[in-house]
Amino acid sequence: MTCYLSHVNIGIQGVGGSKFCVPGSHAFCTVPAMESSAVKSEPDCTQTTAQEVHRIARRIIKGKEAFAIFPNSLKLGNCHVPNTFKINMCGMNVSKLMVSFEGPAKPEVMLTSQRDGTVDCTYRTIVEGEYTINVTFDEEHVIGSPSKTQVKGELIVDTSKVKVTGAGLKEGKNRQLNTVTVDPKEAKITSQLQVYMEGTSKPDVSYRNNDNGTSTVTYKPYTIGEYKLHLKYMDQPVPGSPFTLKVKN
């Protein structure tokens, strides 16, 4: 069942092809099947309100479990360093997403949208203790929220024995995947690797942990030029970081 709305502009995108509304003089919303059984006839479009569209959106979120929280730093965090967990938006508009903390201090919080549709939530606090993380969409908790996390005192790591190898340290290929290997075994570091790049464009950067204890960093730049690759553990740079490299065609 489709009802047509006039002059409604709500920033919510649908899940699985369902559309709620789009800007314009004849915006429309597609009501999911779970709503249709309760409606006996075509609705009076003049009575359909923005609140109704939001209500439908919230029911789809709950019914399809649109949100999934991936626990990197969701259950355990460390003081003075960035802690990050992911939120899977499943196509929903991030403008309605809110993240808040309850605990012994107010952490710094930053939300970053990724190309794969997820949102990285990075928080940093200087006070250890138990915190409650609230993740809401349109003022309602998503699945997995609220969640309790234990933030511990800063861990001191010695990165001087971390080894970094690979052709991607000095030169990268434009619009291609370039790799670098990070080996922290001799340094006996088990904390999460921090990776980011800066340069003439914003490359796609990721890493994976290997079974042998090393990590493989992959980056894909989109313009030629000079870049810097930052590799850290617990905010401590590994030897040689940041690495200056040139990207060529």
Rank of each mutant, 00 (worst) to 15 (best):
P237E: 06
N72F: 04
E108S: 15
A66N: 04
V205T: 08
R58T: 07
L245Q: 02
E102T: 11
D211F: 07
Y219L: 05
G11Q: 15
N72T: 13
E226Y: 08
S95I: 08
K173C: 08
L5P: 01
P239R: 04
D120A: 13
V109E: 01
V142R: 00
S41V: 14
N78M: 15
N174Y: 12
P221A: 09
K163H: 08
K86E: 11
C121R: 00
S160W: 07
V39N: 08
L245P: 00
H230E: 03
G213M: 02
V151K: 00
G166A: 06
I224R: 06
Q51H: 12
K19E: 12
V142C: 01
I12A: 08
G225R: 04
E65W: 12
R208H: 10
L231M: 04
S113G: 08
K86C: 06
P242H: 05
N210M: 07
I133N: 02
R58N: 07
Q176D: 12
T118A: 01
R175C: 12
I143E: 10
L5V: 13
D116G: 02
D235S: 07
M1G: 09
R115F: 14
G153N: 13
V217F: 02
I156G: 06
P184I: 00
T159R: 04
V180H: 04
C121T: 04
T149L: 10
L231I: 06
M89A: 06
G17N: 02
E130A: 13
S113I: 14
Q192N: 10
L245H: 02
K202I: 13
V157C: 05
L97A: 03
I12P: 06
L5Y: 04
K220D: 15
S25K: 14
R208N: 12
P242T: 05
Q176V: 13
K75C: 07
N210C: 09
K19A: 11
E186M: 05
S41P: 01
K106R: 08
N134W: 05
S6F: 13
K188I: 01
L169K: 00
L231K: 01
N209S: 09
M92T: 14
V8T: 13
S201M: 03
C90T: 14
L169V: 03
Q47L: 13
S215P: 05
T49P: 02
K161E: 06
Y123E: 04
A57S: 10
S201L: 03
G144W: 06
T2F: 07
L177Q: 14
Y131T: 03
L76T: 12
T190P: 02
L169W: 02
F85Y: 04
G166H: 06
K96L: 15
L74C: 05
A66C: 12
H54C: 14
Q194Y: 00
Y123F: 10
P32G: 03
I126P: 13
P237T: 07
K232A: 03
C121Y: 01
K62R: 10
D211K: 12
V109G: 00
V39G: 05
V162S: 00
E65Q: 14
A50W: 10
Y123P: 00
N9Y: 07
C45Y: 11
N249H: 13
K163T: 15
I69V: 11
C121P: 01
R55P: 04
A57T: 09
Q236R: 07
Q192I: 07
D183Y: 01
K173V: 12
S145G: 05
